Computed example of a mutant assay.
Amino acid sequence: MHTHSLEPWSHGHVFLGDRHDRHARRTWAVVALTAVTMVVEIAGGTWFGSMALVADGWHMSTHAAALGIAALAYRFARRHAEDPRFTFGTGKFGDLAAFASAIILGLVALLIGAESVDRLLHPAPIGFGQAIPIAILGLAVNLASVWLLHDDHDDHGHHGHDHGGHSHGGHGGHGHGGHDTNFRAAYIHVLADALTSVLAIAALLGGRYLGLAWLDPAMGLVGTVVILAWSWSLLRTAGLVLLDARPSPAATAEIRARLETDGDRVSDLHLWQVGPGHHAAVIALVSDNPQPPAHYKARLAGLRDLSHVTIEVQPCPGHA
């Protein structure tokens, strides 16, 4: 066997989103902002004897923890991007972090709901004058965080890759911005916090000036329902990626349409996400006139998000 270098046919497996580092920096900034506010609120509440301030501080701590998970996920994914232990790179680590984050978000929502039901059944006096400024401070911090994390997370930015190909497996196509589930998870956390602050301010103003004390726990229940819905959406999105679910029927249909010509037939097709804006495909073809894998990969050139392609070709029975 010849001992030629495999360099022309080998390629990397770095499937990080094209905004990975930008998202990481912004997430760390929000972690710092949230942690500082949390410490100030808990210390201030303890000093001034305000349970509302202490409670809000501990509430923010849960979001700080979840945001910390998101930030560490970016760091881990970047640090181990070239680690051969991770067969398809570390692009899905963000989805793992988002899944954990969604569970934390759901637990926070349930705790808010339980506290709200308890307050409805056993009303407690509320220090409106003290609580309103706290809620406004919390909203200001949350809005700053929302601004930092409001990236075009539904936008598919363009970012090309060309790693060549090799005789059996190989790689072709282009990577795009895609959905960064980890960044979306961080965004939903600060959005949930902002929502609870808005609902709290509305309830406190209603309680102080209209005497509607029941508004406070009622708004808590509204927040619970909305945040649980966001949590479920995030769990579902991240879970499907972690389980290598097919990205969309349209994506596989497009691959089949490009490959099934001149009597060639796709006998097996696996398509899954390996990172934000990066999909991998393993395809088995049956052909009357088998061509090298590079021939079929050329048919898939330019397909959106298709970053890693492995093709196996078998001659049609009777056409050996």
Rank of each mutant, 00 (worst) to 15 (best):
C316L: 12
A203E: 02
L107K: 04
C316R: 14
H2Y: 00
P292A: 12
V282N: 13
S197M: 10
V31Y: 05
S197N: 14
H270D: 15
W214F: 14
A66V: 07
A70N: 14
A251N: 09
K92D: 01
G44K: 09
R246F: 00
S116Y: 01
A65E: 00
A185G: 02
E312Y: 00
I227Q: 09
H153W: 07
A131V: 07
A73C: 06
L285N: 06
L300R: 06
H171I: 00
E260W: 03
Q291W: 00
A250T: 08
V274E: 02
G172H: 05
A29L: 13
R25D: 09
V117A: 11
L234R: 02
E312W: 00
H159S: 15
P292K: 08
H11P: 05
G164V: 03
P292M: 05
H176I: 12
A73Q: 02
G94I: 03
V222G: 04
T34N: 13
H308T: 11
G207Y: 01
L110G: 11
H189S: 09
G164F: 01
W147D: 09
A238G: 08
G178H: 04
V117E: 04
V117N: 06
M219C: 15
G157F: 00
T46F: 07
A81D: 08
H153M: 12
H59G: 15
I188G: 06
V31E: 05
P133Y: 00
S145P: 05
G275Y: 01
A77M: 07
A135F: 02
G157E: 11
T196W: 01
V190I: 13
M51T: 06
G138D: 08
L149E: 10
R208I: 03
A250R: 13
D193M: 12
R256T: 11
H150N: 15
D264K: 07
P247Q: 09
V108R: 08
H122A: 09
L199Q: 07
G263S: 12
R119E: 08
V117S: 06
E7H: 08
F183N: 04
I69T: 11
Y296R: 09
I42R: 10
V222A: 13
I136A: 14
N182S: 10
A281P: 12
I311C: 08
H319R: 15
T87D: 04
S116T: 01
W47N: 10
P217A: 04
S101T: 15
W47F: 13
G178L: 05
G206L: 15
E7L: 11
Y296F: 08
L259F: 04
D21M: 10
I132N: 10
A301C: 06
G277H: 03
Y187S: 10
P315Q: 04
D154R: 15
